[in-house]
Design a protein around this nucleic acid. Structure first.
Lengths: 156, 156
DNA sequence: CTAGGAACTAGAGTCCTCTCTAGATCAACC
DNA sequence: GGTTGATCTAGAGAGGACTCTAGTTCCTAG
């Protein structure tokens, strides 16, 4: 189906990972690769598909907020090979918890955001006249959806 | 029920928002307050409950990834008062989309993370002997859960 | 009066993650 | 041979969001 060439240039890897050429060199310098990047004639970097696969994992971990230091630690562990699976597990579990918490926090925030969008939608659809009632009534459902917040700030 | 004093010191506001005293001054300097912070004798900042409410909104927006520049823009709009509800709505909708997208992306990432946690859990529970089969079989459900990724990188 | 603690200001420093610059090399094509 | 375009290195710069420093001022209690 798809041809998978054995050797990839930095530009090709950049293209298929979405990382910049700069970032690839930076990642290498930061020790984020599991296998040392080989060099071809003229000292040019030669990547293989495995590198791209690994980078795609890195990208996902980064996208989910794993700091480079942790990612480096993880790469170190993988590079070391067998014998540290428990540590990898701990690291990944910790990250999982952070991500789960982050999703929870964002979902909570979304409550407020949705509420505000709703308020503004109502105001827009009612025309500007309604704005004068800004600090009046018109807030029955807010409390249930955003329990911790006082009303005054909610309508601004 | 709870007493709400009219005047709050910077320390009190820090305490009840969780922001640092430094951050409060920084936020003020960045124009993130809707109402100018009043000053008491000796030039000390005097906050009121409205400020705390507003800050709590800010905290949620920040926690959901709204940059300070956008938050400032939002504060500007609110400070201006009526007549820009459509712009507020646009701003908040945009943020809502970003947050929704972010939750989606994190949830996707979580698939990979869970998968890796699962792999490591299996390896740990099976003992180290299983590690030698690392690049062998044992990966049936991975594809459905993480479609875009090749298998090799998944077991590292 | 004095000590302690909180607050003030302006501005520098930090941390993270790149991103860009500058100048040199290299391979390929016309 | 010359140009183009990709790559190389080392290191500087950027931007976001604080955080901390230094030196000062002010209030309150003993």
């Amino acid at each position: 189906m798809v041809e998978v060439p054995e050797s990839l240039s930095i530009g090709q890897v950049a293209e298929r990972t979405g990382l910049s050429v700069h970032a690839l060199r930076f990642y290498e310098q930061e020790g984020l690769f599991v296998n040392a990047v080989r060099r071809g004639p003229g000292g040019r970097r030669i990547y293989c598909q495995d590198d791209v696969d690994w980078l795609n994992v890195c990208i996902i971990l980064r996208a989910s907020g794993m700091p480079l230091t942790v990612l480096r630690r993880y790469a170190d562990l993988v590079r070391e090979g067998a014998g540290n699976v428990d540590e990898r597990l701990a690291l990944m579990r910790e990250h999982q918890e952070r991500v789960t918490a982050q999703i929870g926090s964002l979902t909570e925030s979304l409550d407020l955001i949705r509420f505000k969008v709703g308020v503004y939608e109502d105001l827009v659809s009612q025309g500007d006249a309604a704005l004068r009632q800004c600090h009046g009534p018109s807030l029955p459902p807010g409390e249930a959806r955003t329990p911790g917040l006082r009303h005054e700030a909610m309508v601004e």
